[in-house]
Simulated scan of single mutants.
Amino acid sequence: MVQQITKGIKISVANRFEGMLEDNSRPSYAFSYTITIENQSKFIVQLVSRRWDIIDALNVTETVEGDGVIGIQPILQPGETHTYSSGCLLQAPVGAMQGAYKMMNFDTAEYFYVTIPTFKLNAAFAMN
């Protein structure tokens, strides 16, 4: 598990390899990840949007941006957490993800960014 705190918001990430898929004789490697967002600040915050850079060992990079996470924009009181799970497909059995959440501080109405720490995506069979 990797963790990082930015401006009082702690991001924890756990991931795992889910298996291979074949489409038109081209393999894809499926990974899942679970993220916990913990508000360690003294302010009420809302996760507004996200940006991901997904990179595989073949140097293929996909950028994903959108509102909220899995269809919601959670509001976190001080001390609260929000956990969600999602996934991605890579063209190679090894890669990484990194990104950021755009958050809003309800007390000041200001936006700020929280770093999602880089985490590696590795299929066990590919790691010798």
Rank of each mutant, 00 (worst) to 15 (best):
M1C: 14
V2L: 10
I5G: 04
T6V: 08
K7P: 01
K7G: 07
K10H: 11
K10S: 11
V13E: 01
V13G: 10
V13S: 10
V13P: 01
A14K: 10
A14F: 10
N15G: 04
R16F: 10
G19K: 11
G19T: 02
M20E: 14
M20Y: 14
M20L: 12
M20G: 09
E22H: 09
S25F: 06
S25H: 12
S25R: 13
R26Q: 13
P27S: 12
P27H: 12
P27I: 13
A30L: 13
A30C: 07
F31W: 00
F31R: 02
S32A: 12
Y33K: 10
T34F: 03
I35A: 05
I37A: 04
I37R: 06
E38S: 10
E38H: 15
N39S: 03
N39R: 10
Q40A: 03
S41D: 01
S41Q: 08
K42A: 09
I44V: 08
I44R: 09
V45G: 02
V45W: 07
L47S: 05
L47V: 13
V48P: 12
R50N: 14
R50Y: 03
R51C: 08
R51G: 14
R51W: 01
W52E: 14
W52L: 11
I55G: 02
D56Y: 08
N59W: 08
V60W: 09
V60K: 13
T61P: 03
T61F: 03
T61M: 11
E62L: 05
T63R: 15
T63Q: 13
T63Y: 02
V64G: 09
V64C: 08
E65L: 11
E65A: 14
G66Y: 05
G66T: 00
D67P: 09
G68W: 00
V69Y: 13
I70P: 10
I70M: 13
G71L: 07
G71W: 05
P74A: 03
L76C: 05
Q77V: 02
Q77F: 11
P78W: 12
H82A: 12
T83A: 08
T83D: 04
T83G: 05
Y84G: 01
S85T: 15
S86P: 06
G87P: 15
C88M: 09
L90E: 12
P93L: 07
V94G: 00
V94K: 04
G95Q: 02
G95K: 01
G95I: 09
G95H: 02
G95V: 14
A96M: 03
M97A: 11
Q98C: 09
Q98M: 03
Q98I: 00
Q98G: 07
G99Y: 00
G99N: 08
A100Y: 01
K102G: 06
K102H: 11
K102F: 06
M103A: 05
M104G: 02
F106V: 01
T108H: 06
T108I: 04
T115Q: 11
I116V: 15
I116C: 13
I116F: 01
K120A: 14
A123K: 14
A124I: 13
A124G: 08
A126C: 08
N128F: 12
